[in-house]
Design a binder for these strands. Sequence first.
DNA 1: AAATAATTTAATCAAATGATTAAAATATTT
DNA 2: AAATATTTTAATCATTTGATTAAATTATTT
Lengths: 202, 202
Amino acid sequence: MAKSTSKEAISAEEKIKAAARKVFTQKGYAATRTRDIVEEAGLNIALLNYYFRSKEKLFEIIMLEKMQEFFGIIIPFLHDETTTLDKKIEQITNRYIDMLLQNPDMPIFVLSEIRNNNGLFKKIQVGKILQSSHFVRQLKEKQPGVQPLHFIASMLGMIIFPFVSKPVFKSAGVLNEHGFATMMEERKKLLPKWIKAMLGTK
Amino acid sequence: MAKSTSKEAISAEEKIKAAARKVFTQKGYAATRTRDIVEEAGLNIALLNYYFRSKEKLFEIIMLEKMQEFFGIIIPFLHDETTTLDKKIEQITNRYIDMLLQNPDMPIFVLSEIRNNNGLFKKIQVGKILQSSHFVRQLKEKQPGVQPLHFIASMLGMIIFPFVSKPVFKSAGVLNEHGFATMMEERKKLLPKWIKAMLGTK
DNA sequence: AAATAATTTAATCAAATGATTAAAATATTT
DNA sequence: AAATATTTTAATCATTTGATTAAATTATTT
């Protein structure tokens, strides 16, 4: 062992990981070259293989991390037995939008990498967690005639889709970076109102 | 000139294009090898370069085609001055879902390739078309206090997001292929009702 | 301080991949 | 049918790219 990280020194390993987070999420696995990553980190290409063995192993680490963030963030709210359905909707909307504003590339990265490679994703038990949640029970109770998945897909769609389509709106000249942030702040208020209106329909 | 396409003979050029459509939309530009495409077409690798000069040029052709489909399909409805707002919502929802059921890989393909390369997308004037549309005027009239983009992002999110997240729900065991199709058929009824409810909130 | 262990570098390798070439096969025109 | 043009193939090239190696450097232990 070397490098006592006593002060502020960031280890080469951590620099590579940080660079990998950035480059992988921006360009995706296939379009990323190991050389892009080490260049971003200001380091040597052999170090990547020294610390992580291969591009694929490094990717798995980053991907698992990102999936945990992407799916994990709402789990506590889903299971909270002390909150009303309306409260959960507000919490999930707010919390998710805040997190994605910090990680705007995350959704399209996670979703398109899962398309390319289900294997990693299956390690995370999203399906069971979701279906056994208090949130789903509350949705069923409120609208027994409609599959809860419809509401969930709609809610997540309204939250996540703007991030996925941001490049489209930007290069179409409909939105700039600042306009997007403003829009997402407004959505924290709008979406709960709209989702409640949806749940109120017969 | 050779190959008179008098009967059913599909030209090599068209076989390659068809294969390219399939492989590019399934795996994306970077993860696609020219060898994948010609193999899918049952042809020789030199033919791809003979007819299309390069992987990139072939990709541009496919990408422009897909963007036209992805964005173009709703344009006639957006501009129809004879229909009510509610009618437009029904038409767009129905038409879009039907088209995407035929092309389920299209959204994630188009959206992630635009992220990687704005250049091509800018050739299509989506921004201006949208903002000058009858649909947007009707949205403004109905809810002057809310930017039309909020409604559009929500509507498109509810339509498109299920396709983008289909691999997630499938490998999470929440949905199989048939369940997904059923769900999307149900959504043709549900979404217009929900969008109208959103537009009805104060 | 010497010996040992860990980290970093420059140089290189092997495989994958987009592209080309020259010849063969097929179709079209004269 | 001969001449010409087009299409297809097998073989090969050049570059890119993930990975390795052996030596140099730096840190840690004895």
